[in-house]
Computed example of a mutant assay.
Amino acid sequence: MELSVPHLPCAVRTNSSPSSSQLLNPRAFNRPLVSISQRNRFGPMEPQRATASSMVKGHGPQITAGPPLDTVGDRIGSVKRVTNETNVVVELNLDGVGSPDSSTGIPFLDHMLDQLASHGLFDVHVKAVGDIHIDDHHTNEDVGLAIGTALLSALGDRKGINRFGDFTAPLDEALVQVTLDLSGRPHLSYDLQIPTERVGTYDTQLVEHFFQSLVNTSGMTLHVRQLAGKNSHHIIEATFKAFARALRQATEYDPRRRGTVPSSKGVLSRS
Rank of each mutant, 00 (worst) to 15 (best):
Asp101Trp: 15
Asp101Ile: 07
Ser103Arg: 15
Ser103Ala: 15
Ser103Ile: 14
Thr104Leu: 04
Thr104Trp: 00
Ile106Asn: 00
Ile106Thr: 09
Pro107Gly: 10
Leu109Gln: 07
Leu109His: 07
Asp110Met: 04
Asp110Gln: 01
His111Ile: 13
Met112His: 07
Leu113Glu: 06
Asp114Met: 11
Gln115Phe: 13
Gln115Leu: 15
Leu116Pro: 10
Leu116Met: 14
Ala117Thr: 12
Ser118Pro: 10
Ser118Asn: 14
His119Asp: 09
His119Arg: 08
His119Gln: 12
Gly120Phe: 09
Val124Met: 08
Val124Glu: 00
Val124Asn: 11
His125Thr: 12
Lys127Pro: 00
Ala128Cys: 11
Val129Glu: 15
Val129Thr: 15
Val129Asn: 14
Gly130Arg: 07
Asp131Thr: 10
Asp131Phe: 01
Ile132Ala: 11
Ile132Tyr: 08
His133Asn: 10
His133Gln: 12
Ile134Asn: 07
Ile134Trp: 02
Ile134His: 09
Asp135Arg: 06
Asp136Thr: 13
His137Ser: 08
His137Pro: 04
Glu141Leu: 13
Glu141Asp: 12
Ala146Phe: 05
Ile147Trp: 08
Gly148Met: 09
Leu151Asp: 07
Leu151Arg: 11
Leu151Tyr: 10
Leu151Ala: 12
Leu152Arg: 14
Ser153Val: 08
Arg158Trp: 09
Arg158Cys: 15
Arg158Leu: 14
Gly160His: 02
Gly160Asp: 02
Gly160Ser: 04
Gly160Leu: 01
Ile161Asn: 03
Arg163Lys: 10
Phe164Ser: 09
Asp166Pro: 01
Asp166Thr: 14
Pro170Met: 02
Leu171Asp: 01
Leu171Thr: 10
Asp172Val: 10
Ala174Tyr: 05
Ala174Asp: 06
Leu175Gly: 03
Leu175Gln: 02
Leu175Arg: 00
Leu175Asp: 08
Val176Pro: 04
Val178His: 05
Val178Thr: 03
Leu180Asp: 09
Asp181Ala: 07
Asp181Pro: 02
Ser183Gln: 05
Ser183Asn: 07
Gly184Asn: 10
Arg185Lys: 14
Arg185Gly: 12
Arg185Ile: 15
Pro186Thr: 12
Pro186Tyr: 06
Pro186Trp: 13
Leu188Ala: 05
Ser189Cys: 11
Ser189Asn: 13
Ser189Leu: 13
Tyr190Pro: 04
Tyr190His: 02
Tyr190Asn: 00
Asp191Met: 10
Gln193Met: 14
Gln193Ile: 13
Ile194Thr: 05
Ile194Arg: 04
Ile194Ala: 09
Ile194His: 04
Ile194Tyr: 07
Thr196Gln: 11
Gly200Lys: 01
Gly200His: 01
Thr201Gln: 14
Leu206His: 02
Val207Asn: 10
Glu208Phe: 08
Glu208Met: 08
Gln212Asn: 13
Ser213Cys: 08
Val215Glu: 03
Val215Thr: 08
Asn216Met: 13
Thr217Ser: 10
Ser218Val: 09
Met220Ala: 12
Thr221Glu: 07
Thr221Pro: 03
Arg225Trp: 09
Leu227Asp: 06
Leu227Trp: 00
Ala228Lys: 01
Ala228Ser: 11
Ala228Leu: 01
Gly229Met: 04
Lys230Gly: 15
Lys230Ser: 15
Asn231Lys: 03
Asn231Val: 11
Ser232Gly: 00
His234Leu: 05
Ile235Asp: 05
Ile236Glu: 05
Glu237Gln: 02
Ala238Phe: 00
Thr239Met: 10
Phe240Trp: 10
Lys241Glu: 00
Lys241Met: 03
Phe243Leu: 07
Phe243Asp: 02
